[in-house]
């Protein structure tokens, strides 16, 4: 098997695509739509994730210290936070009291307190971490010496996380089903092509063609069709998102967010084409293998 064989097979596959554009177009539509649905689901979920992280407050964990904590102990906790790699700020109890005083209606109450009841606190910024990581941080920080209480409202984050995981699973299942469909569609296309070229295949095998020689153009055809189907799917998703981005932007503006719907990224388009190529190639190989097994040498 030489480079010339591969060039030849690729050229043959391209010729066949060009010579029967209408047939190719129909197959491409089937493949494109099969790939577009899971791809749209995937990109939509990612948009939900982005929108949610923009709409909600940045997740913050508050560490309230023991009132009796000394300078060195506070320094030790600060060091641990630095090790954890999370951005943090220190809120001294006096500063916290000042802020409380500044609030409408609380100034009198605060003024009447015999002494400052507030503890020193650290506030750690958890933006960009998933629920499990935040959970783990909260748990470990609770065990640090002189940390009296760790506060974090993680319910919304966990719900979102569960929702996204469920959504991704649904997308994967959908992709699996449509992937099988794509393999079957390619299998059928290639089978029809081989039946139409039965004589050519018979002659080629009689004069010394290996199964590889016979199957290569079909494998390339399947892969090419998959790549084009992937591009078509990406175009369909991009188009749909283009029409949706206006109304979605308006909706999120009403919620005071500057969120903008994003279409499929370059990496996602690449992944779509790669998936299409792989599944198309697989369908073609299966089809050729079955055909050659059914025909005597």
């Amino acid at each position: 098997m030489s480079l010339a064989h591969h060039q030849q097979a690729l050229a043959t596959a391209l010729e066949r695509l060009r010579d029967a554009p209408f047939n190719a177009l129909l197959s491409l539509l089937v493949i494109g739509i099969a790939l577009a649905l899971p791809a749209a689901g995937w990109v939509a979920l990612d948009n939900v994730r982005l929108a949610a992280s923009g709409l909600a407050e940045a997740p913050e964990v508050s560490l309230f210290l023991d009132p009796g904590a000394g300078r060195d102990e506070v320094k030790a906790i600060e060091q641990k936070l630095r090790d954890a790699g999370a951005p943090y700020r220190f809120v001294a109890k006096d500063a916290a009291l000042e802020r409380l005083k500044a609030r409408e209606g609380l100034a009198d109450l605060v003024a009447n307190l015999p002494k400052n009841p507030l503890p020193d606190a650290f506030v750690a910024d958890m933006a960009g971490r998933d629920a499990a990581a935040v959970e783990a941080f909260v748990k470990s920080a609770g065990e640090w010496p002189r940390v009296a209480h760790v506060q974090f409202d993680s319910a919304w984050m966990r719900r979102l996380d569960a929702f996204l995981r469920l959504g991704r699973l649904a997308v994967v299942l959908l992709a699996g089903v449509f992937g099988v469909g794509l393999v079957a569609a390619t299998f059928n296309t290639i089978r029809l092509q081989m039946l139409a070229r039965a004589q050519e295949i018979e002659v080629a095998r009689l004069i010394g063609a290996t199964p590889g020689f016979v199957s290569r153009p079909y494998a390339y055809y399947g892969a090419l069709q998959g790549i084009l189907g992937g591009l078509l799917a990406a175009a369909l998703v991009a188009l749909a998102f283009f029409f949706l981005s206006g109304p979605v932007g308006e909706l999120t503006r009403l919620y005071g967010s500057s969120f903008r719907l994003r279409g499929p990224s370059l990496a996602e388009v690449g992944a779509l084409c790669a998936a299409g190529a792989l599944l198309g190639w697989l369908g073609a190989r299966l089809s050729v293998a079955l055909y050659l097994r059914q025909q005597p040498q």
């Binding site: 010339a4 050519e200 004069i207």
Partner: peptide, 21 residues
């Protein structure tokens, strides 16, 4: 067993394509 969908030259080229010439 000639291939009637292609010209004379292409028929003769087939064994050479198979051999990878």
């Amino acid at each position: 067993k000639l291939l009637f969908d292609r010209p004379v030259l292409a028929n003769v080229l087939l064994p050479l394509e198979i051999a990878g010439t």
